[in-house]
Design a protein around this nucleic acid. Structure first.
Length: 417
RNA sequence: GGAGGGGUGCCCGAGUGGUUAAAGGGGACGGACUGUAAAUCCGUUGGCUUAGCCUACGUUGGUUCGAAUCCAACCCCCUCCA
C-alpha cells in the first residue's frame, strides 16, 4: 500500500477505524487537497446512542479536528421505516412522538463531540425528515427509483439473511436503502457532501448512495466503513447485563459509564485506546506494553479519557475518584449511585430483600433470595446471611447512608430523605 | 384458494396424559481463583407473605381425577401446489 497523503486518512488507518473504503487513493487525495464534507446517519431508535455508535462519532470528530466538515444526520425520516440490514425480522414501528423524543436525546450527545458553532468548519446537524417526509411518490419514483435495480438490491448481503430464511421483507423496509441512497444525494446538493461513513453493516446501503450519486449527478461519492467491533472474547460491544452502555447521562451514570471502560478485557485495551480516546499513538503504545496487573493503569486511563469526552473532564475524574475509593481503599465513596428512601419508612425498618429490589440491584425478592444463598449480597460490606434481616436506622454509617453491594462491582447507597 | 409442517422459559431447543416450573445448550448473574482482566471450576437462572400458594408452554374454549402433551375454533409463521 502506498503511503497515505492526508493526515485524516493516516489517523483513521493507524487507529483502526477503517474496514472498507470505496476508493482509498482518491479519497486520500481529496482529504489532502481540500475540505471534505462527510456524513454519518443515526437513526432515532432509542433515547440515546450507546457505545456501539461511538466509533462513528469519533470519526466525525477526527474529521473536524483535521480540518474537514462533519455532518451528523439525524434519521428523523428513515427511522419511520426501520433499517432491515442484517436484521432477521422486521422491527416494530416507532410512533412519530417516540422518534421526536429520541432525536432530542441523541442531539445532546453530539454537542459533546462536535463543534457546531465556531471554527472554520462548524459541524452540521441535518435531519432527513426535512426532505423525506414530503416526497411526492410518483415524482420520487421517476427521479430516483428508476436508478435502482431490484435484481441488484436483492443480491446485497444485508437483505440475504431475511430472504434466505424466507422471512418476509416488507416493501416498506425494502425502501430503506433507496431513501438512504437519496439522503446522500440530497446532502451533496445541500452541503457538498461527498463521503458517507458508517458501520460495516451499512456498506450495502452506502454503495447504493454512491451509485445514485453517479447516475443522478455524475459525481464520485465515497464510502468508508468501520469494522464491526467485538470484544476479544467475541461478545458484541456495548452490552452489559443491565442493558446498553448509553452515552447520555440520564440513561447511565458517569460512574457506571467509567466502570464499563475500566472493566475492559486486557486484549481490548490497545484497540479501545486507539478508537475511543485521542491520546497520542506513542502514549498508547506505552500503555499497551504494560504487563500483568499494570494493565490496570492503562484501563483507568482509558476509562477516564473516554468518560471525559462523553461526560466532561470533571465527571470523569469524579468517577475515577469514586472508583478508587470504593475499590482500592474499600472505603465508602459518597457519590456512588444513590437511592433515596423516605426517612419515616426507613426508620421503621425495611427487609433486606426488598431494599435490594428498591435499589435496583436485583429484579425481585426471589432473585435477592437466591443471591443471598450464593453469597452475592452485602450490606455495608458485610455479607447478608439472613434473608429476613431488617435494615433500619441502626445500620446507617457515620455518613448517614447504607451501602448495598451486589457482587464485587455493583454498589448503591441508600440514603434516608 | 388447496395440501402439509410449526408456534415451549432471555435465546436456541427437548418434551406427545401424571414423578414437569418443564431435559440440554447458549447467554446472564453470583461464588472461588486473580489484577475491579481473560481462561477455568462451582452455584443460580418465573413470582409471592417459600415445608405452602399463584402464574406459565400462540389465543379461547372443551375432554379428563389430572393437559405443554388429547379435541375444537381462531391468530401468526413456514413448505409445496394453484
Amino acid at each position: 500500500m502506498t503511503a497515505l497523503k492526508s493526515e485524516l486518512m493516516q489517523i483513521l488507518t493507524e487507529r483502526g477505524f477503517i474496514h472498507q473504503c470505496s476508493d482509498t487513493a482518491s479519497l486520500d487525495q481529496r482529504f489532502a487537497s481540500e475540505t471534505v464534507t462527510g456524513y454519518i446517519g443515526f437513526d432515532a431508535t432509542a433515547k440515546s446512542l450507546h457505545v456501539g455508535s461511538l466509533m462513528q462519532i469519533m470519526m466525525l470528530r477526527w474529521m473536524q479536528k483535521t480540518g474537514h466538515r462533519p455532518i451528523a444526520l439525524m434519521g428523523g425520516g428513515t427511522t419511520r421505516i426501520g433499517d432491515p440490514s442484517f436484521k432477521d425480522e422486521a422491527r416494530k414501528l416507532l410512533t412519530d412522538d417516540a422518534i421526536a423524543e429520541n432525536l432530542a436525546g441523541i442531539r445532546q450527545v453530539f454537542a459533546n463531540y462536535l463543534d457546531f458553532d465556531g471554527g472554520a468548519h462548524p459541524a452540521i446537524m441535518a435531519n432527513n425528515a426535512d426532505w423525506l417526509n414530503d416526497l411526492k411518490y410518483i415524482d420520487f419514483l421517476r427521479d430516483v427509483g428508476r436508478h435502482f435495480s431490484i435484481n441488484r438490491m436483492l443480491s446485497f448481503d444485508s437483505v440475504k439473511l431475511r430472504l434466505d430464511r424466507e422471512q418476509s421483507l416488507s416493501f416498506l423496509e425494502f425502501n430503506y436503502m433507496i431513501l438512504q441512497g437519496y439522503d446522500f444525494v440530497e446532502l451533496y446538493k445541500r452541503h457538498d457532501c461527498i463521503l458517507q461513513m458508517g458501520g460495516s453493516d451499512q456498506w450495502g446501503n452506502i454503495v447504493n448512495g454512491i451509485e445514485l450519486g453517479h447516475r443522478m449527478l455524475d459525481r464520485q461519492f465515497f464510502a468508508l466503513t468501520t469494522p464491526l467491533l467485538t470484544t476479544s472474547s467475541g461478545a458484541k460491544m456495548g452490552k452489559t447485563a443491565s442493558g446498553a452502555v448509553w452515552l447520555n447521562e440520564e440513561m447511565l451514570s458517569s460512574f457506571e459509564f467509567w466502570q464499563f471502560w475500566r472493566n475492559t478485557e486486557d486484549g481490548d485495551v490497545e484497540r479501545f485506546l486507539k478508537l475511543y480516546t485521542e491520546l497520542p499513538m506513542g502514549e498508547i503504545a506505552r500503555l499497551a506494553a504494560l504487563q500483568g496487573s499494570e494493565i490496570n493503569d492503562a484501563k483507568k486511563i482509558l476509562a477516564t479519557e473516554v468518560t471525559a469526552l462523553a461526560r466532561g473532564r470533571a465527571a470523569a475524574e469524579a468517577a475515577a475518584e469514586t472508583a478508587r475509593r470504593t475499590f482500592e481503599e474499600g472505603a465508602l465513596a459518597e457519590d456512588l449511585p444513590t437511592v433515596e428512601v423516605p426517612s419515616s419508612e426507613f426508620g421503621a425498618g425495611i427487609g433486606v430483600l426488598s431494599l435490594f429490589v428498591r435499589a435496583g440491584l436485583v429484579a425481585s425478592n426471589g432473585e435477592a433470595r437466591r443471591q443471598v444463598k450464593g453469597g452475592g449480597l452485602r450490606v455495608n460490606d458485610a455479607a447478608v446471611t439472613d434473608e429476613k434481616a431488617i435494615i433500619g436506622a441502626g445500620d446507617l454509617t457515620p455518613e448517614g447512608v447504607v451501602k448495598l453491594s451486589l457482587g464485587r462491582k455493583k454498589h448503591i447507597l441508600v440514603r434516608p430523605a
